Computed example of a mutant assay.
Amino acid sequence: MTPGIPDEYFVRGNVPMTKEEIRILSISKLRLKEDSVIWDIGAGTGSVSVEAALISKRGVVYSIEKEEEGIKLINENIKKFNVENIVVVAGLAPDVLLDLPSPDRIFIGGAGDKMYQTFKTALTKLKRDGIIVVNGITLDTAYSAHRYFKQNKYKVETICVNISVSKEAGNKTMMIARNPVYIITAEKEG
């Protein structure tokens, strides 16, 4: 299966999911290796975890989720896509991160009210030459993440992605805009 699994292939519920186009851009920014150790914080349905696990076949993905429904959906998607290198971690970041193995790559799809504490733990545990990618839908998240990583001597890039998807409107086709998403990538300098 190629990167960019269509959204409709995933088992979904009432838990947020990183959409296909944003997911593939975020995964691209992670620069995954075949043996990467990855944290997916705020994993939701596990869509990023599944795609990352398929790329990093000899690595492991720690799929961190606090919502019971999300944990159920992640497990269903693990079965559906037959990936065995995902470890589901039930709980709230940053608390559950402390006992996990140090990652090469971190994806943060949601950190809630503990964003700064999660960033701090991530920087403490991230291996040398590691990469962190944060997705945010608010200016506040984008600004806070960009500033935090820059203050901590990381090379930071923020992009804003605006996606529109076609929809049939009678015998015409129109474009329907989705919410803009900020993708913040942080790499340790030097």
Rank of each mutant, 00 (worst) to 15 (best):
L139W: 03
L73T: 10
S36T: 06
T138I: 09
Q151S: 08
S102W: 02
S26N: 10
K29M: 12
T121F: 06
I38C: 12
S144D: 13
L32C: 09
S26M: 05
Y154R: 03
P94L: 15
I78A: 08
V60R: 13
Y116P: 08
S28Q: 11
G112N: 06
I86H: 14
N171C: 13
I55Y: 03
G42L: 12
V83R: 02
Q151F: 07
F10K: 09
K114S: 15
E34S: 04
E157S: 15
L54T: 03
V60Y: 01
V88F: 02
I86A: 15
I24N: 09
A169K: 10
G112L: 09
P101R: 11
A177V: 14
L98P: 00
K172N: 09
T45A: 11
P103Q: 13
V87S: 07
F81A: 07
N171Y: 05
T138A: 11
G130M: 01
A177W: 11
R31C: 13
S63Y: 02
T121M: 12
P6M: 07
L100F: 11
I55V: 08
K167M: 08
G136C: 14
R12M: 03
K155Y: 02
T158Y: 06
I184D: 04
I159H: 00
F149R: 05
R23N: 03
D35M: 07
T45H: 04
V61C: 15
P6N: 13
E65C: 12
E189R: 14
V133E: 00
I159F: 01
A90W: 01
K153N: 12
L97W: 07
D99L: 12
I24C: 09
K66D: 11
Y182A: 04
I131N: 00
V48C: 06
I22K: 08
L54F: 03
N77H: 04
I64K: 05
N171A: 15
L54S: 08
R105H: 04
G130H: 00
S56N: 07
T185C: 06
I74G: 05
L97A: 13
Q117W: 04
N179A: 11
C160E: 13
L92Y: 14
K114C: 10
P6R: 04
K72R: 14
V165L: 13
V50R: 01
Y116Q: 13
G109M: 10
K66I: 15
A53G: 11
T141P: 07
R23A: 03
A52H: 00
S144Y: 06
N85R: 03
Q151D: 15
E76S: 08
M115R: 14
I78H: 04
V15P: 00
K79H: 10
K188F: 01
E21V: 08
C160H: 04
N82G: 10
I106W: 00
V156H: 01
T185I: 11
I176R: 06
A122D: 03
N179F: 00
N75K: 13
V181D: 09
T18A: 07
G70S: 04
S144T: 06
K80E: 09
D140R: 15
V50H: 02
K150F: 08
R147G: 13
G112S: 11
N14D: 15
S26W: 02
S47C: 06
I22L: 06
